[in-house]
Amino acid sequence: MPIEFRKNQALFTEVVSVEDAEGLLEWLQKKPGARIDLSACMHLHPANLQVLMAASVAIVAWPADAAFTGWLRSALAAPP
């Protein structure tokens, strides 16, 4: 599975596909304060990104790829 759901945190790994978005959405509805670890993520389908944005989740770790992180930060980083 590209998303490992733990107690209160989800770990995104490799390529998170469009199919994973539904599961993510369900999980986030049950865990309002959940945090996301993107450090092992190579790419995620925008369906997932939308869900993360809508849930205003806290990102605990960003991906290694700086450009990728740049994109994600523009969408997910909390406003200063």
Binding site: V18, L25, P46, A67
Partner: peptide
């Protein structure tokens, strides 16, 4: 590159993840 939402997000319960 950057990403922005076209509209404010609905509550999660009403969200359709598959509408871009």
């Amino acid at each position: 590159g950057g990403i922005v939402a076209r509209a404010p997000w609905p509550p999660l319960a009403a969200m359709d993840a598959y509408r871009c």
